[in-house]
């Protein structure tokens, strides 16, 4: 299917775009979520990604490869813009108290808060990486692209993908060791402090967003 699809996309075929959307909306949505940490931001990023794909269809390289790297590349750029100011929102989410019990209306929010907490834990670690490293890591580890595809998505050489991932790995190893050492020293926390902890966990991410790299 793919070989014809890329050409049809380049030619601006309406049905090809419908197919592209159906095949990749989910992957783009989840990738955007992992970069923004916010489902509604991810939804916007996903929608805008396909609009941008349409507008940039003529810049798409010819060939027969999967179109996923291209879309995730566009989504990565979109997510970068969406992230401006999102650090604050993430911190807010993490601080948000449990939802009030209002029957049906509250159920879904509970799921969101769980996600937010889980995400805050990821951000505490992931947020210590440089943006370029984060993006390549999200593409290769969570979205399942290989190095060449990630290079295509980001418009960078394969060697750069490799070196960014090596740096990310080195830094994550170091963080893991530090964490182990701290856990041995620190007494267990009280339950009530969890919210506070999550708010702090989101801070490095916010600081990171302002890092001019």
């Amino acid at each position: 299917m793919t070989e014809g699809l890329r050409e049809r996309i380049r030619a601006g075929d309406r049905e090809a775009f419908a197919q592209l959307y159906e095949e990749h909306a989910r992957a783009v949505y989840n990738h955007a979520f992992r970069l923004t940490g916010d489902w509604s931001a991810a939804e916007e990023v996903m929608g805008d990604t396909f609009l941008d794909a349409w507008r940039g269809r003529e810049q798409l390289e010819p060939g027969d490869g999967s179109l996923k790297p291209w879309l995730l590349g566009v989504a990565t750029n979109k997510a970068r813009n969406a992230n401006r100011g999102l650090g604050r929102r993430l911190a807010f989410l993490a601080r948000r108290p449990a939802p009030a019990p209002v029957a049906d209306f509250a159920e879904e929010s509970a799921g969101r808060i769980d996600d937010a907490r889980q995400l805050a834990a990821v951000q505490a670690v992931y947020g210590r990486l440089r943006r370029g490293e984060q993006e390549v890591l999200a593409l290769c580890v969570w979205s399942g692209l290989d190095y060449a595809q990630a290079a295509e998505a980001m418009g960078i050489p394969v060697g750069t993908v490799r070196s960014r991932l090596s740096r990310a790995r080195a830094r994550l190893r170091k963080l893991a060791e530090q964490r182990l050492a701290e856990e041995k020293k620190e007494p267990p926390r009280h339950r009530g402090e969890v919210q506070h902890e999550a708010a702090i966990a989101a801070l490095p991410f916010q600081e990171f967003q302002e890092d001019p790299r």
């Binding site: 909306a25 989910r26 949505y29 989840n30 979520f33 992992r34 489902w39 939804e43 996903m46 769980d114 996600d115 889980q118 995400l119 834990a121 990821v122 505490a124 670690v125 992931y126 580890v141 969570w142 790995r169 994550l172 190893r173 963080l175 893991a176």
Partner: peptide, 11 residues
């Protein structure tokens, strides 16, 4: 090395 990310969802 990374904590688990939230599970993927359908749009």
């Amino acid at each position: 090395l990374l904590p688990p990310v939230p599970a993927e969802r359908d749009v």
